[in-house]
């Protein structure tokens, strides 16, 4: 396992797992892993892997707002490491892939093209 992913796993288990589960399966808070292909279905699971369209968006959110009670307490590299670990849990990057400002935007997220523009008004009421 690459040094970065090892570091990401260590950070995740220490700082994220309590709320998001040991393998990102969700606990008190949202699941981060799984649900790929479930969007729009009755048993939908919205996660980083199934729903989020851009990997840099994951970095931005973790960097900006996580951990919930101590945001801003991780270095930029630690955020890359923990994001690499989350992406790896979703099977989207290999353990040896290094995540940085250059590589992260290139990660192919399954739901990259899952968003459409607002077509409303779309519902016509019968009267």
């Amino acid at each position: 396992m690459a040094t970065e992913t090892v570091e990401g796993k260590e950070i995740f288990e220490r700082r994220c797992a309590k709320c998001h589960g040991q393998k990102g399966e969700g606990a008190d808070d949202a699941a981060l892993v799984g649900g790929i292909g479930s969007l729009g279905k009755p048993k939908e699971l919205r996660t980083v892997g199934s729903f989020w369209p851009h990997a840099p968006g994951v970095w931005d959110y973790v960097n900006r707002a996580m951990p919930f009670k101590e945001p801003g307490s991780m270095t930029a590299d630690q955020v890359y490491a923990v994001v690499a670990f989350i992406l790896n849990l979703n099977g989207l990057v290999e353990v040896q892939d290094e995540m940085n400002a250059k590589t992260l935007p290139k990660v192919k997220m399954p739901n990259r093209d899952g968003f459409v523009k607002d077509p409303r008004p779309d519902v016509k009421a019968k009267r």
């Binding site: 969007l39 729009g40 279905k41 939908e44 919205r46 980083v48 729903f51 989020w52 369209p53 851009h54 968006g57 994951v58 931005d60 959110y61 707002a65 899952g114 968003f115 459409v116 523009k117 607002d118 077509p119 409303r120």
Partner: peptide, 24 residues
């Protein structure tokens, strides 16, 4: 296209596509 504009505050449709920037 940040977290609040993708994984939140978008409207999932039956075809699995989510409507984005649905403000009004």
């Amino acid at each position: 296209a940040s977290r609040e504009e993708t994984s939140k505050y978008t409207d999932m449709m039956p075809d699995g596509k989510a409507r984005q920037y649905t403000f009004a």
